[in-house]
Write a protein that binds this DNA or RNA. Structure first.
Lengths: 213, 213, 213, 213
DNA sequence: TAATAACCGAGACGGTACGTCTCGTCTTAGG
DNA sequence: CCTAAGACGAGACGTACCGTCTCGGTTATTA
């Protein structure tokens, strides 16, 4: 958003429907013509607003794109609690796969990456406003896994998070490989196996192996 | 290159130093201002050439970007063969970490990602001209690991490659986390442990643990 | 004025101080920045009112300009009657010189001219509401001069009026020459000499009449 | 013109046909839609050029209008020499009347006036580049008239020039009165009669002196 | 006294022209 | 035919301004 300052108490208030219409039109146009293929004038026309209304809210076209993406991904994350560490991780991973397999995030994420590289404050906003929530949810699940004896006590949580998320983004952004359940399950499986406690905790590891089979 | 056809035999010949200066200036400017943030005019000025010289060689700005990147990544990859699967993987991973920690590729990659998303031919060029070679080197090492009994015979090579590379790009592009040896070794370690053959449980895992320590 | 209709009998009445403040601010801003150089928003700010208050009174910016000018020039003209034709003309001419030498009308007039050229109704308003009164006063004086025998009976009053007023505006608007008493007296003198009755001077008036015919 | 500086010696030269096409299109559009009623984009389209070509030559729309006018009025003035002072003055006056009666100058002059009031350097340019030539031609004719004995030796040339030109502009800009031969001849006649040498008629000058006192 | 209606300042709104900027091409004088 | 410099046509961008509308609140007349 352009003005994060508190709303002025006098004068006509900004119409929230205009806010929404602008973001909505932007997302539609990005999906139709690509991030650099649409015109601000088209956004204005489709949203039924003037260009001024757009630029009052977003300081540039890039900013508009970013805000639209942010609005799109601004959703609650529920920490799953099925009783099974594997099932919990799987739930979050499948959710992520679903999200990025969608048309819009798939087209937007690459541009977001480039914008983040050039604008640190945007990078911070995306990380703190979006990634952190997913990472916190995963962290909660992983810590329960440790408590439950499914994961080693000295597991490097940061590393696990990057291994869970990395391949997903790698395929989305770089290799173009498939974002599917197989990926999600392959990674989850590796984590559970690779970071399983060393000890002779047989019963549990057996169960894990069974679930995999 | 714009004209791959045979060089004309008459008239003044193109100066190869001009070719190089253009590519070099382009890479610098991409790193400084991003793929969409630099201007062809700037490339001309920095390279000390006219815009004509650029467009005689590259048919568009995107083409110029592609050629520059191609020139950058056009380097040999040696497949390491130390006798130890872990050491071989580590060698390749450390090399990659070194590469992306460097100034130019590190700043180039985020911009490249966004450009790739919009230009499939650029994406293909980058994948085939650059990634594929690293992946093939890793694949060779992994297959030797399988032969050697360090990895399961049914290991999903594609998945392993994505798990090896994913976290690296994830930190570079998204989280901003550190690109260091700890990351490289953590991932290598996980792969070797997670995809270790099941049966000969004890001896091997012990050895693996030792190597890690 | 926007609504010439009778004031509504219910609701809050328009504040006459607001009426005046708007006109005053408009005139100041026209003088400062020209007819096309000021903004309605500036008028509102300087008058301490909202834009709505302006547009409730004037249907457009041009209308506002017109009303402001009308308010400015809405002044009585007294027809002088000293007994001397020369003194009467001089009185009116000096008054005019004084008026246009002043800051506001002097700066307003050039802008007004351009606005008049594009808006016939403004031109008419200025002519009828302002010029006509001066011209009528002069006409009265001139007709008395004719009766008194100071001017020829067949004098072209319109032409005399334009010769009296023209040089004044010419200097104000075009040449930038001085608006001073010397100008006023020079023109007055010429009129009295050039349009003096023929009789007392035989040779000359005959020749003039011939040439004119 | 935007850049009065010397043309750079290297690079492509500005196309003089583009210069002319822009001015031509501008004049046409002014005639069709008025000075403020046309759009720069329309000029570009009609001239078959890009907006850049316009703004490379003229720093603003107003500047473009002015340059167009300047091009229009940039014509040689020939000093007439018929042997008759009256005929010489008449020739110049009729020429001026013809000029300002035309559609374009008639529509442009008012705007020029307003622009001159706001931009002293424009005012100077118009005066020195255009008015001065007419005034010099008239001055030459008047001085010959003095030599010839048709005008008083002590005639105030500046005043005469303003009386000759003033009524013309007054009607054009203010009163909207007719610009016709009658006006030209009436003014010429008055000058010749009013500034005729005193000598042959002593009584007159005495009387005039008395009235003035 | 309460309801009603028009006023008020502030400022967001839709619309539209402006002037800037960049791309990829073309033109010039020269190597 | 190459080169550097820079003008060219095209068209999107972000700004500025107009005249309208909305907001919370005030003022005056009617009921």
């Amino acid at each position: 958003m352009h003005d994060k300052a508190a709303e002025p108490q006098i004068g006509r208030r900004r119409d929230p429907r205009t806010d929404a219409a602008i973001l909505r039109a932007t997302l539609e146009l990005i999906a139709e013509r690509g991030v650099h293929g649409f015109r601000t004038q088209d956004v204005a026309k489709r949203a039924g607003v003037g260009k001024g209304a757009i630029y009052r809210r977003h300081r540039s076209k890039d900013d508009l794109v970013m805000a639209s993406v942010a609005a799109l991904v601004d959703q609650e994350i529920v920490v799953p609690d099925t009783g099974s560490t594997r099932a919990d991780i799987d739930a979050l991973m499948h959710e992520a796969v679903e999200l990025y397999r969608g048309a819009l995030p798939g087209r937007l994420m690459p541009n977001l990456v480039s914008a983040m590289a050039e604008r640190p404050e945007l990078a911070r906003a995306v990380r703190e406003g979006f990634l952190v929530r997913r990472r916190e949810a995963l962290t909660a699940v992983l810590l329960r896994g440790v408590e439950r004896g499914d994961l080693r006590r000295d597991v490097d949580i940061e590393l696990v998070l990057d291994i869970l998320g990395g391949p997903l983004f790698y395929r989305l952004l770089i290799t173009g490989g498939p974002l599917d359940d197989q990926l999600a399950e392959g990674v989850t499986d590796l984590i559970l196996r690779g970071f399983a406690p060393d000890k002779p905790t047989r019963a549990r590891s057996t169960r894990t192996a069974k679930e995999h089979a």
